[in-house]
Amino acid sequence: MADELVFYTNPMSRGRIARWMLEETGVPYHTEIMTFGGTMKAPDYLAVNPMGKVPTIRHGETIVTECAAICAYLADTFPEKELAPKPHERGSYYRWMFFAAGPLEAAATNRALGFVTPAEKSRMAGYGSFGDVMDTLEKAVSTSPYIAGDRFTAADVYVGSHIGWGLGFGTFEKRQAFADYVARVTNREGYRRATALDDELMQQMQ
């Protein structure tokens, strides 16, 4: 089919973010399970995603990689699902989605790797310092029920996934505002369906 939606993933990867977003849309899709160091690096898949990473979606002739881009693409492609604000209301939506894709992920990754930006060189880092990022994020999730306002959007899928993983793996500071926000955004059928699907796949792969 020209508009077939194919989802390349592994249940032990960031593919869980894209899976959640796909389940929020409720549209049918075909899942291709990729293996680390195996099918992810095979020529056929490298032709789809030269990075050899997941997730990736192929929608007809359109290929989208990177979780934030996948979330935004799906929200725009299926506007009837109302997973993005109206175009003139998207300031906060774009701001926090790209904040999570840039400063937040970089700061959390560096922390997990044991890298600390020297205070005198913090201006060289796009995120400044880990503390700056945590404080900024705490204010963002405390201002309104959802990251872009009063309604759940694709930005909550992306930001909520980052915070949930950060709390679970210990790469984020444990703050009550973070826990409360994650509880709000994951209390959804789409999240529960996505989690059940990926957990079942993990069991099958063991």
Rank of each mutant, 00 (worst) to 15 (best):
T171Y: 14
A155V: 09
Y181I: 09
D199H: 06
D150L: 07
M1L: 11
R192M: 12
P103D: 03
A140Y: 04
G190F: 00
R192C: 07
M205I: 14
E120P: 01
A72D: 15
S13W: 11
L83P: 03
G170P: 08
G38K: 12
L197E: 11
M97A: 08
L22P: 00
R151Q: 13
E89Y: 06
M202W: 01
A108V: 13
V133T: 03
M1W: 01
K139D: 12
A18W: 05
Y45C: 05
L74G: 11
P55N: 11
S92G: 10
A75G: 09
W165A: 12
Y94D: 10
I147F: 03
I70A: 07
T39E: 04
P103H: 01
G26H: 03
T39G: 01
R123H: 07
G131W: 02
F78K: 11
T77H: 13
M124A: 04
Q203Y: 07
V159A: 07
Y93K: 09
A106V: 09
P50F: 08
S142F: 02
N110V: 01
G52V: 12
F172I: 07
V141E: 04
E82W: 00
Y45N: 02
I33F: 07
T195L: 11
A183M: 00
V182S: 05
A84R: 01
D135W: 00
D180M: 06
T171F: 15
